[in-house]
C-alpha cells in the first residue's frame, strides 16, 4: 500500500486533518483513506500501541440492524449472537456484533476492513413484498453517524478514568463488555475487544463509538487525556501488528 493523500478520497475520516498534522501516512482500505502509520519505526509504533495508542477507524465498515426480529434474522444469516444485551459477540471473520439492546445490533468490521460481512447482510436484507411482513428488523446505517476510534495498551483504563465514569479495568470489564456511557461529556459506546498476539501476549483494546459530528472534539479530548501516559496516535498497521 503506497501513501495516498486523504483529500483525494471521498471516503476519509472527519478528523483526517488532525491525523495528518500528527504525521499520519494514509493508505487505501476498502476504497477509503485510512491512517496506516505515523512515519516512525514499526517497532516503536507497536510499542506505543502496547502502552497507550489511539487509532481512528472511522473509515472502516461499520453498520447495524435494529427492530423486532433483528437477532433472529441475523442468526439465520449465520451470525453468532448471545442472549445478553450490552455484550459484543465476536464473529468468525473477526467482526464484532455488539448487542446494544435486545433488538439492536451494532456491527464492526474486522481490522482487515473488507466490509464483506456488512455487504453480504445489506444485500440479503429486503423488505418483504406484502403484508403481513415478517419481523426481521431493518438496516441501521452507522457508517456516517458514528466515529470509530480504538484505544489500545496497558494504560487505557487509567486514561478513561479521567474522562469516563465507568470502571474499564480488565477485572471489572470483561472481553466483549459494552458500556454505553459518557466520555468527555458526550455519549459514547465503549466495547472491550482485546488484541491477542500469536505469542499469547494480550494487549487491552477498546472500541469507542460516538457521534461523528463531534469526532474532532472527542479525538482532541482523548489525545489530551492520553498525553499524561505518553499516549500517541497509532495507525492501523500497529493495531494489526498487535495480533501478529
Amino acid at each position: 500500500m503506497n501513501a495516498i493523500a486523504p483529500a483525494s478520497h471521498l471516503r476519509r475520516s472527519f478528523i483526517y486533518r488532525l491525523l495528518a498534522a500528527s504525521g499520519a501516512e494514509f493508505g487505501e482500505v476498502n476504497g477509503g483513506a485510512v491512517a496506516l502509520h505515523y512515519g516512525g519505526s514499526r517497532e516503536a509504533e507497536l510499542a506505543t500501541a502496547r502502552r497507550l495508542g489511539l487509532a481512528d477507524l472511522s473509515v472502516l465498515p461499520h453498520g447495524g440492524f435494529k427492530g423486532k426480529g433483528t437477532v433472529e434474522w441475523l442468526t439465520a444469516q449465520g451470525l453468532a449472537i448471545g442472549p445478553d444485551s450490552n455484550v459484543a459477540y465476536k464473529q468468525a471473520g473477526g467482526e464484532w456484533a455488539a448487542r446494544l439492546a435486545p433488538t439492536e445490533i451494532f456491527l464492526l468490521d474486522s481490522l482487515a476492513g473488507t466490509g464483506a460481512l456488512l455487504q453480504r447482510l445489506n444485500a440479503a436484507w429486503q423488505w418483504a413484498a406484502a403484508a403481513p411482513r415478517p419481523a426481521q428488523g431493518y438496516p441501521m446505517p452507522r457508517q456516517d453517524s458514528h466515529a470509530w476510534f480504538m484505544a489500545t495498551g496497558a494504560f487505557v483504563p487509567e486514561m478513561f478514568a479521567k474522562i469516563c465514569g465507568v470502571d474499564l479495568r480488565r477485572e471489572h470489564f470483561a472481553e466483549g463488555a459494552i458500556a454505553q456511557t459518557s466520555v468527555a461529556k458526550m455519549s459514547a459506546i465503549i466495547i472491550r475487544a482485546d488484541r491477542p498476539a500469536k505469542d499469547g501476549r494480550v494487549t487491552p483494546a477498546y472500541h469507542v463509538l460516538a457521534d461523528i459530528a463531534s469526532a474532532e472534539y472527542l479525538w482532541t479530548c482523548l489525545m489530551d487525556a492520553a498525553a499524561e501516559f505518553d499516549g500517541k496516535p497509532v495507525g492501523l498497521r500497529a493495531l494489526r501488528d498487535l495480533e501478529a
Partner: peptide, 17 residues
C-alpha cells in the same frame, strides 16, 4: 458525583441521566 442506578445499565454518574 451522585450515582443513579439505571435498571438497564447499572450504577452510573447522574450526569448521564
Amino acid at each position: 458525583m451522585k450515582i443513579m442506578n439505571c435498571p438497564l445499565n447499572g450504577p452510573r454518574n447522574i450526569s448521564e441521566f
